[in-house]
Write a protein that binds this DNA or RNA. Structure first.
Lengths: 108, 108
DNA sequence: AGTAAGTACCTTGCATAGCAAGATACTGTG
DNA sequence: CACAGTATCTTGCTATGCAAGGTACTTACT
């Protein structure tokens, strides 16, 4: 898988999963990896960025068989951002597809 | 437009346009910018990379109203790469869309 | 002649995000 | 007690895109 393709996209993936349910980092790796490989060295810095800009808040919760988990929850700003980034991704992907298919009319 | 989304994608865009016709750098900026913003500071290094790895060859051609143009032509390796990267992009985009739509079954 | 705009090529330095590799620490199993 | 699985984190590296700048040719206007 072309690593470069993932740049920026993993962020909207994380936001999108969190829009459906609160998750902890390790869980997110598993969820997203069903579709797209993502490593722990990517997810944790990403989650910290999202917290820094106020798209998520965190809370700790103990786990049965392991260390306690840090759950991430979307804020209202995060929910709005999720919506906007999703739309932007859709527009972008449509533009790329049009280019790859050789459609020359910008109205497509 | 999220700059990060373009990482890696502009390369397949360039290969795809060149698969249809030979182009010079300045022309490629115009062609691709119909759909996706791309700057000259991106295209020239990219074209040089493509030449270094043998996906394109170049030839000079004089121009009526300006300096001579350096045209880029896909090699066989470049054509094969165009095909493979296009398929990879399609798979990737489908994975992202599935994730954003919350489809949980990896069979989708 | 001089100057500006459009064409066409190029480079340098910066910002960003993903990853491999490693560190830390908790729990349950052999 | 060691090991595997869970769970968090950091450091150093890599790749790509961009802004900003430079060079040089041609045409049009003053």
């Amino acid at each position: 898988m072309n690593i470069q393709f993932k740049k920026g996209v993993l962020e909207i993936c994380v936001l999108s999963v969190l829009a459906r349910k609160d998750c902890y980092g390790y869980e997110l790796v598993g969820e997203i990896s069903k579709r797209i490989d993502i490593s722990e060295g990517t997810i944790y810095p990403l989650l910290h960025r999202l917290k820094d800009v106020g798209y998520v808040t965190t809370y700790l919760q103990e786990s049965a068989g392991g260390p306690s988990r840090k759950y991430y929850r979307l804020t209202e700003a995060g929910r709005k951002e999720e919506h906007e980034q999703k739309e932007e991704w859709m527009r972008f992907a449509a533009s790329v597809n049009a280019l790859l298919e050789g459609k020359n009319d910008a109205a497509d």
